[in-house]
Design a binder for these strands. Sequence first.
DNA 1: GTGAAAGCGCTAACAC
DNA 2: GTGTTAGCGCTTTCAC
Lengths: 348, 348
Amino acid sequence: MLGAHGDLGGRMRVTIADVARRARVSKATVSRVLNNRGEVDAGTAVRVREVIAATGYTPSAGAVGLARGRTQTVGVLVPHLTCPWMGDVLQGVSDVLEAHGYGLLLHTMNRGADSVTRFTRHVSGNAFDGLLLVEPPDPLSCLTGLRESGFPVVVVDDGDDGDGDGDGDHPGFPSVATSNRAGATAAATHLLATGRTRPVVIPGPAALGRTRARTEGFRTPFTAAGHPTPHHVEADPTRAGGRTAITALLAENHEFDSVFTHNDLTAAGVLDALHEAHVDVPTQVAVIGFDDIDLAAHTQPPLTTVRRPSREMGEAAATILLANLAGAPFPTTPEIIPTELIVRASAP
Amino acid sequence: MLGAHGDLGGRMRVTIADVARRARVSKATVSRVLNNRGEVDAGTAVRVREVIAATGYTPSAGAVGLARGRTQTVGVLVPHLTCPWMGDVLQGVSDVLEAHGYGLLLHTMNRGADSVTRFTRHVSGNAFDGLLLVEPPDPLSCLTGLRESGFPVVVVDDGDDGDGDGDGDHPGFPSVATSNRAGATAAATHLLATGRTRPVVIPGPAALGRTRARTEGFRTPFTAAGHPTPHHVEADPTRAGGRTAITALLAENHEFDSVFTHNDLTAAGVLDALHEAHVDVPTQVAVIGFDDIDLAAHTQPPLTTVRRPSREMGEAAATILLANLAGAPFPTTPEIIPTELIVRASAP
DNA sequence: GTGAAAGCGCTAACAC
DNA sequence: GTGTTAGCGCTTTCAC
């Protein structure tokens, strides 16, 4: 009977000592076989491996971590899990991490300060080797402490706009972002090319770097072509927000031939409002969103939008972090994954 | 200068020994203060706490885990992160776990067998105290081993139909499911109440218990009312699948006045096909989906659907698991979170 | 009330 | 090549 130490319920863990005893070697040798470290006699190695297979031994992750000082785990902090693209980011991260044998410890900031406190404890508790911060809100107090401690951190989707001046929302951290500026420029260029000259812009939260980048990127082609700066309208970054904003605009008889929103949800609301007002899309007004969430392909009409490469950003961030854990230095400039203009019926 | 042992880069970890030394007590006493265990002199406790605060000491999660034999972490295995409701499930799980001070180690099965192998290593490596299996595919080999070992596992969204016979896809495991049968019955009843008698059903994967449950639940009211068994049509569980299926059905002049699909994506495809064929929804054909993903509220017309309480299911599963870790026995019958019929314009 | 000492399961010098 | 010996940072008897 195997390892019948009598644990309550299941059988007792088989430890490296058990393996060593049964293979008639020392724990050190088992460890060597386990990690292909040092030269071990071929015959001995085979014997050890047989015992390992026979006993079903698996090293205790915790013990290995304690002894090595590394946990083979990275922490991921996300604002919340329910927004449309978070799954994509996580999938990208998870794929890379799993491929390299790393675990992924997930944390949410859903419960505000308390969440962050708990998270910080985990960090200082050495629960993981490195950290991925997804869309961190601006004033994340624990950040400064992190940087000072030299703990490996990569920021995903910092507000950086890809214009090379490195002015993300969290300068000083290695980061992955998308070409917010170029994406917005592509949208503007597309509108101009299809004869639209009087756009309305519904920007995102003003505090975010990406809002600045998208705003500027969109304005550039218009002013360059001699048109006035696009009209801006504030709105909640929701479907209802977009709808309300455009309804108000129509009520005051503001003239426009196109709408560019900083996110797809708002754009969906814009479509709603236009539909209600019997304004045809795209003949009377063209609409372009941002992100390319699932919904974008399903609106009526389907939404032309700037795709944000969420999954690729997750992959890139994880890759950079793992490279650093493996000894490589962090890149000094943000890695920019390009956006892509997805042309659908709302702005053909 | 604090703990200037000289770690490369950051400052060296402050350990319980450091705290003990500076507070002029033993490690044991610090541990007692830390865990409110045993009677510690009030003055001593205060002194220790001061040192802890001053040094910013945080216990090493790994060391605590090794010593206590518990990691305060639960593993979550999901098929993939990109499907619409997974974020909701995870959010529910995460909220409960964080509220109880547990970490969440996320695993994906994206890469098939390899993923599962890695995952299994983590399990036997004692990386976590308990396990949440979300929508596990039928033949998950490691499952039987898990059950035998007595390792705490809760299955989320097992195929169980809530009819009380406990015939989930993974009998023997405690599980959380939704009232698939009752939800489908509600959809059927709603259709009948609005004068629809010739429905078409597009079921989900035949292998899943929930497909059986939804199929039966939908059929019951029709046969009870003396109508024939609803016509079934196979289709991929995607938007394209629903579209193709209905297009074919229209081509062969099959008569029907309503469509019930086992998921919203398929329903969206059905709407597409009907729209193309100039069949009006809902006057000519009513459509009801299942799940209530974000998309459902945004289709044209908005989709009537059976809401599946993803987030609540996640919360329930986590709660059951934590209760077990705290000593409570597992419930012997699946916990059923009820569905809810969300009536929108596609089937008013 | 508090300390000393023995682990938890593993790795990593260092000897032989 | 392989064993011995220390730890990694904490918890937990068991004395005092």
